[in-house]
Amino acid sequence: MDRPSRTRPPATLASLAAELGVSRTTVSNAYNRPDQLSPQLRSRVMEAARRMGYPGPDPMARSLRTRKAGAVGLLLAEQASYAIRDPGAVAFLEGLTLECDEAQVGLLLVPARPGSEDIAGVTRAAVDGFVVYSMPDDDPHLTAALARPVPSVICDQPSISGTDSVGIDDKAAIRQVAEHLLSLGHHRIGVICMRLGRARMDGPVPIERQQSARYHVQRNRLLGLRDACNAAGVAWDRIPVVERFEHTVEAGQSAAAEVLALDPGITALIATSDVLALGAITELTRRHQRVPEDVSVTGFDGVKTAVDFGLTTVEQPVVDKGRNAGRMLLSPARKAAGRRIVLPTRFLPGRTTAPPRH
Rank of each mutant, 00 (worst) to 15 (best):
Phe245Tyr: 07
Ala232Trp: 06
Leu262Asp: 02
Pro317Val: 02
Ala17Val: 06
Gly322Pro: 05
Thr163His: 08
Ala261Gln: 15
Arg62Trp: 02
Arg195Ile: 07
Ala30Asn: 06
Gly338Asn: 14
Thr97Ile: 09
Met194Asn: 15
Tyr82Trp: 10
Ser165Glu: 07
Gly203Leu: 10
Ser159Thr: 14
His187Gly: 01
Pro158Leu: 13
Glu179Asn: 06
Thr123Glu: 11
Gly121Cys: 15
Arg286His: 12
Gln104Thr: 08
Pro292His: 08
Thr143Gly: 10
Glu102Thr: 12
Asp118Gln: 11
Gly252Cys: 05
Val131Lys: 02
Asp170Ala: 05
His216Cys: 09
His186Arg: 06
His187Phe: 00
Leu311Ala: 05
Gly252Phe: 00
Gly95Cys: 05
Ala333Phe: 04
Leu348Trp: 01
Ile270Tyr: 06
Lys321Ile: 02
Met52Gln: 15
Thr345Gly: 03
Gln316Asp: 01
Pro204Ala: 15
Leu16Trp: 02
Ser152Pro: 05
Ile174Asp: 04
Ser183Lys: 09
Ala277Phe: 09
Asn230Val: 07
Ala91Asp: 08
Thr267Glu: 06
Ile281Met: 15
Ala337Phe: 00
Ala11Met: 00
Leu16Val: 14
His216Glu: 13
Asp202His: 02
Val110Glu: 04
Pro344His: 11
Gly233Leu: 02
Thr282Ser: 13
Gln104Asp: 07
Ala280Lys: 08
Gln79Tyr: 08
Arg6Asn: 05
Pro34Val: 07
Arg198Lys: 10
